[in-house]
Design a protein around this nucleic acid. Structure first.
Length: 260
DNA sequence: ATGACGCTCAAAGAGCGA
């Protein structure tokens, strides 16, 4: 089975490229972040037509929002609000084979990497801390995917030096992400298949004149597996070409195949 | 150092992304 993840930056505005991705890659499950739509306005019909019969939504007006679209039944759905502020950032479900899939959109954290000056940065770290406590108690094989908004390794960014003080690659965020990983011994499947320091990015800013030429990318999106199932992963793929599709998202989709 | 872009909506520019 394959599970994909994509920060789509408005599912309605980019419905055509989501459909293209599903036709060309046909994952069993697609986890979307930044759907930017309330549940009542979610474009169900397009996904129903492509066989994604099972849909789990956690949307809100204007910002954030996550969704899972699946060919397989989604059972035991759950949602988490790690900030306790009503933001729609995390849903999960169990698949018929027992696997838990969690889909998360970690807060970006604002501009200034200082918790005293920037409440959003403090919220981002608190979000990760709550996820860490949850991870520590997790006993079942789980795949967690999404936009973590942190590029942890030096080779996860176009310039480690230039981004050391830029939110997404600061040492304190990297430490928080490492503690989250350690709490469940999460296995970073992206780096298992594409070991550092090989180039592996999932996001390029809209603000570059030519994203490909400047290639100032960051690996903000991740797929992690419980240690018990990490060895079941047989394939990992990013679809970098999608950064050029139509009106593109600034993130690209990634997929993992599991022999479960 | 700055600003570059793009999406949403109380509909023009503010708020947000990262």
């Amino acid at each position: 089975m394959t599970v994909a993840s994509w920060n789509i930056n408005s599912v309605r505005f980019r419905l055509d490229i989501v459909e293209r991705f599903l036709r060309e890659h046909a994952p069993d499950v697609l986890c979307l972040q930044e759907t930017k739509v309330i549940d009542n306005d979610f474009p169900h019909a397009a996904f129903e037509a492509l066989g994604y019969t099972y849909r789990l939504l956690n949307g809100q007006k204007m910002h954030h929002g996550v969704a899972m679209l699946s060919k397989l039944p989604l059972i035991e759905d759950r949602r988490y609000d790690w900030q306790d502020n009503g933001e729609a950032r995390h849903i999960g479900a169990r698949l018929p084979n027992g696997l838990l899939v969690e889909n998360v959109y970690v807060p970006a954290g604002g501009d200034i990497p200082d918790t005293a000056k920037n409440p959003k940065f403090a919220q981002k770290l608190a979000f990760l801390e709550r996820m860490t406590r949850w991870s520590a108690n997790l006993r079942e094989p789980t795949l967690i995917v999404g936009d973590f908004n942190i590029a942890p390794l030096e080779s996860d960014v176009w310039s480690h030096k230039a981004l050391l003080d830029v939110v997404s690659h600061t040492p304190i965020e990297v430490e928080h992400l490492a503690r989250l990983a350690a709490a469940h011994d999460w296995v970073d499947l992206g780096r298992r298949f594409v070991p550092a320091p090989q180039r592996l990015y999932t996001w390029w800013s809209y603000r570059a004149a030519d994203w490909k030429a400047s290639d100032r990318g960051r690996r903000l999106d991740h797929i992690w597996a419980s240690p018990a199932i990490a060895d079941k992963a047989t394939r990992f793929e990013i679809v970098e070409d999608a950064r050029n599709w139509g009106k593109p998202s600034d993130h690209i989709p990634q997929l993992v195949e599991l022999a479960l």
